[in-house]
């Protein structure tokens, strides 16, 4: 199972802990949406490639 973690802001300690548990033993990738000009094309490619995308706070 491949999981994509998308971050809308700097992850909190709570988010970091949950990401760690959810990702354990699984293939995972991430995308930072909080940058000034996100590459939406790359984001959509990553979402399509993942089995599950989680858009964190």
């Amino acid at each position: 199972m491949k999981i994509l973690h998308v971050y809308r802001s700097e992850p909190s300690e709570t988010t970091k802990k949950l990401v760690e548990i959810v990702s354990e033993g699984r293939e995972s990738d991430s995308f930072d949406l909080s940058v000034e000009n996100p590459d939406y094309d790359a984001l959509v490619d990553k979402i399509i490639a993942a089995d599950q995308a989680i858009t964190w706070f």
């Binding site: 709570t14 802990k17 949950l18 760690e20 548990i21 959810v22």
Partner: peptide
Amino acid sequence: LEEVGKMLR
């Protein structure tokens, strides 16, 4: 929080 993480899986 650990239990929540496990449920999320």
